[in-house]
């Protein structure tokens, strides 16, 4: 199981170009859809915590998912698997290939890969939304979040904390109302 987790995250780490966000759809596909080790809701919880914590989102997500599946050993296996491919590849480039950085063939490959990364991220958003219990208020919260980040440059940390606080206050008030009725 531990080695399996390491292998899965090694594969995820080896194929996610364009920064950490590109890792999320692949983690989702492997662990939620294919292996069904964690649920969609748990996966979204992991991303939420990863977003609100310091450090790369993909690294945080892999640590949390590892803990969730197999405790401390799982967390270490997932973390190591996720970062080892990029560590090895960068080390090899730094040692031997830094001078080939503007090769035209590589540039062409990346002209193709960059749009693919956008498609993958959008696909993750779509399936998260499809698999959650949809309400207008949630849709509204998602859209407001997107607009605040894209147009107002609000820090994701603040929005995550605000979302949590609003939800706690909302449920707390609702809860007390229900108790008063009894």
């Amino acid at each position: 199981m531990i080695f399996d987790l390491f292998k899965t995250f090694f594969k995820i780490g080896a194929f996610t170009f364009g920064g950490g966000y590109a890792m999320l759809p692949i983690i989702q596909k492997e662990l939620v859809d294919n292996k069904k080790i964690i649920s969609n809701i748990e996966f979204m919880n992991a991303i939420a915590l990863a977003q609100a914590s310091p450090g790369p989102v993909a690294v945080n997500t892999s640590i949390y998912v590892g803990y969730r599946i197999c405790g401390l050993k799982g967390a270490l296996a997932c973390l190591l698997g996720a970062i080892l491919p990029s560590f090895l590849i960068i080390l090899i480039i730094a040692m031997f290939f830094f001078q080939y950085r503007s090769n035209p063939l590589i540039e062409k490959i990346f002209m193709g890969i960059r749009p693919a990364v956008v498609a993958l991220i959008l696909s993750a958003v779509y399936s998260m939304w499809k698999n959650s219990r949809k309400t207008y208020i949630k849709l509204f919260a998602s859209i407001v979040t997107l607009l605040m980040i894209v147009f107002l440059n609000v820090s994701p940390v603040i929005i995550v904390i605000a979302g949590a606080l609003i939800s706690v206050v909302y449920h707390r008030v609702l809860h007390e109302d229900m108790e008063n009725e009894h």
Binding site: L24, R114, I121, I143, T145
Partner: peptide, 27 residues
């Protein structure tokens, strides 16, 4: 439970925003 209920819709927005910002430079 309440904290997570509030955060989940935010996550969808966050990742949507990541798609927009990656899209701006990639497309």
């Amino acid at each position: 439970d309440w904290v997570f209920k509030g955060i989940r819709p935010v996550v969808i927005g966050l990742i949507g925003a990541a798609a927009v910002s990656v899209g701006r430079t990639s497309l």
